[in-house]
């Protein structure tokens, strides 16, 4: 274990703590934002999902080291993300007639 290496790890540890604090903050914001009326329920939904995505980005990016992963894994996750989006979007689209009532 080289000194340099150990130093890097300690630095990373500090980063993890910041991320942790950010996640706690994100949780608080999510809860608070849910009780603030933004005018329509869809807007509340959008805000909540946005915050959740930000938190997910932190977990995936830092705890799971996706910020600096190998190309192969990006490729895999990119494809998966695409197919997931296709699944969700196309299913919803094919039921588009119910859309007017979205998120009552």
């Amino acid at each position: 274990m080289s000194e340099h290496h150990a130093h890097e790890i300690r630095q990373a540890t500090r980063k993890y703590i910041y991320v942790f604090l950010a996640l706690l903050l994100g949780t608080v914001i999510t809860v608070v934002a849910a009780y603030v009326p933004f005018g329509s329920r869809s807007l509340n939904v959008a805000v909540a999902l946005l915050i959740a995505s930000a938190k997910a980005f932190l977990v995936a990016g830092f705890f799971m080291h996706l910020i600096s992963e190998k190309k192969l894994i990006y490729g895999l996750l990119g494809a998966t993300g695409f197919f997931f989006a296709g699944l969700m979007f196309l299913i919803v689209w094919s039921n588009a007639d119910q859309f007017l009532s979205i998120f009552r």
Binding site: T30, V31, A34, R41, A48, A52, K55, A56, V59
Partner: peptide
């Protein structure tokens, strides 16, 4: 992180 808002809050 997604389940919580989706099921509890929205």
């Amino acid at each position: 992180i997604f389940l919580f808002p989706v099921l509890y809050l929205l």
